[in-house]
Design a protein around this nucleic acid. Sequence first.
DNA 1: ATAAAGTATCGCATATTTGCGATAATAATT
DNA 2: AATTATTATCGCAAATATGCGATACTTTAT
Lengths: 110, 110
Amino acid sequence: MAKKPPTTTDAVKILHNRYIKDDSKRLESLKEEREKAYIAGQIYNLRTQAGLSQAQLAKLVGTTQSVISRLEDADYDSHSLNMLRRIARALHCKVEVRLVPEDAKLAVHN
Amino acid sequence: MAKKPPTTTDAVKILHNRYIKDDSKRLESLKEEREKAYIAGQIYNLRTQAGLSQAQLAKLVGTTQSVISRLEDADYDSHSLNMLRRIARALHCKVEVRLVPEDAKLAVHN
DNA sequence: ATAAAGTATCGCATATTTGCGATAATAATT
DNA sequence: AATTATTATCGCAAATATGCGATACTTTAT
């Protein structure tokens, strides 16, 4: 749906913003951007914490380095759940997908 | 990756098991099955709670009834995040994706 | 029981994602 | 600074998901 924006972003910066800096500014209409950047960041985090290079993770997943790089691109938003599950499996994780109401005063308990 | 199993399952039964019956039996190796069934269930729940038919939701999403039916099939596991986001938007939700460690003793607080 | 509304399933064209090599760009090491 | 390792990006073929009409099946209402 969304086209790849012109600028080249890297997940590291996004992660920095998310975890190191205080995220005081919450632009209302950017939830999706944040979410997809967050996915990229999760993959990056899990991979590096596991001490793996993109090439190494790629081998575990059964694909190539460039694919991993694409997944860690914060601008990339065309994930399939299958791919995410493959990544997750290689990193001993599971994928949780939740459709959470936007305007919920109180989230449904789990 | 996973092939569509032979049996025809419907999300309602899954939901019933999940919400009405007590889920005492937790088969260890079926987390993925449960997760993908859970996605189907979430869509079904949100749609019906919104008082929409599949055809009505389809129109909101910009697709057809059969596509919605496919998404609510508990056996369907080939989602794309883009499609999930479209569904979510139509139902005033947002999609949250988390890669959570399998063997975590304690989950990271939200 | 019939009709109507809703849902499931099939088939195939179209669109999108992945596979993957090649190469450029960065970062790390020596 | 020069290698070497790592990551980013491009291009296109192959695989997979969606679009969507048709139709069977199911449920609900009359």
